[in-house]
């Protein structure tokens, strides 16, 4: 990285900073320091460049949303919906994340080094999410593709109405949601876990995780089922 650019949210608005990141970075690679985030929302959303961004402090909602290519690191906690709809690149949170981390993410990697709150990975569509701590209730709800790896515990109703996302949990699972089931861990799973742990720079035993995937019983309407219970 040849250049370091320092931006300060005490001196500039989040809109000015985001417009700079969208339009004024130039062709060469750069590293950007964002100071004094003070929990402000929408920092570094919509990036589409191979830039490295460090946010020094706690950030607010939607941090690094819709990210493409960029590697964004938050040196603190984040509010709701960090890296929502991430397309590629990497978003890393050194602290904890509030609800809906990585929601609807299509690609790339989201790393929460601390805990993530409820609905982590809700409706994820192909990104990978690695959580160093635990996740709250309804995580990976309706998750369609990609992998959620949780090193700690998972809260109630994990993987409810799951499609093809696979979930790995290192700690205890409070409860599984509808149509989510625990399955045997295969050699392929261990390789996937090892790859994600390495990408997230976390050290855990890949063999110590549980695999949760969809039982696929909600995929189709069961015409022959007895629906009288609902009439």
């Amino acid at each position: 990285m040849d250049r370091v650019i320092t931006l300060d949210l005490e001196k500039q608005t989040v809109r000015e900073i985001n417009q700079f990141l969208h339009h004024d970075l130039g062709e060469s690679s750069a590293r950007v320091e964002i100071l004094n985030p003070f929990g402000v929302h929408n920092i570094a959303v919509g990036l589409d460049a191979p830039v490295e961004v460090d946010i020094r402090g706690h950030a607010g909602y939607f941090t690094a949303g819709m990210n493409k290519q960029a590697r964004v690191t938050v040196h603190g906690n984040v509010g709701w919906s960090v890296a929502e709809n991430i397309m590629s690149g990497e978003v890393r949170v050194k602290g904890c994340a509030s609800e809906c981390a990585g929601a609807s993410g299509h690609g790339g990697l989201v790393v929460i080094e601390g805990d993530a709150s409820s609905r982590c990975g809700i409706s994820m569509k192909g990104c990978d999410i690695v959580v160093g701590g635990g996740v709250g209730h309804m995580s990976a709800f309706m998750a369609q593709a990609g992998t959620l790896l949780v090193c700690g515990d998972a809260g109630p109703s994990l993987g409810d109405s799951l499609y093809e996302t696979v979930i790995y949990v290192g700690g205890a699972i409070h409860s599984l949601g509808a149509d989510a089931r625990e399955e045997p861990l295969t050699a392929d799973d261990r390789a996937t876990i090892a790859r994600l742990l390495a990408a997230a720079r976390l050290e855990r035993d890949p063999g110590s995780f549980k695999r949760v995937a969809s039982a696929r019983s909600l995929y189709h309407w069961h015409a022959g089922a007895d629906h009288k219970a609902y009439s």
Partner: peptide, 22 residues
Amino acid sequence: SEYRALAHLPNARQANIFEPVP
């Protein structure tokens, strides 16, 4: 409701910050 309302309190960054669970 949001951390940004707390961010400017004295020593907020050193505070024990947590999200209440359901």
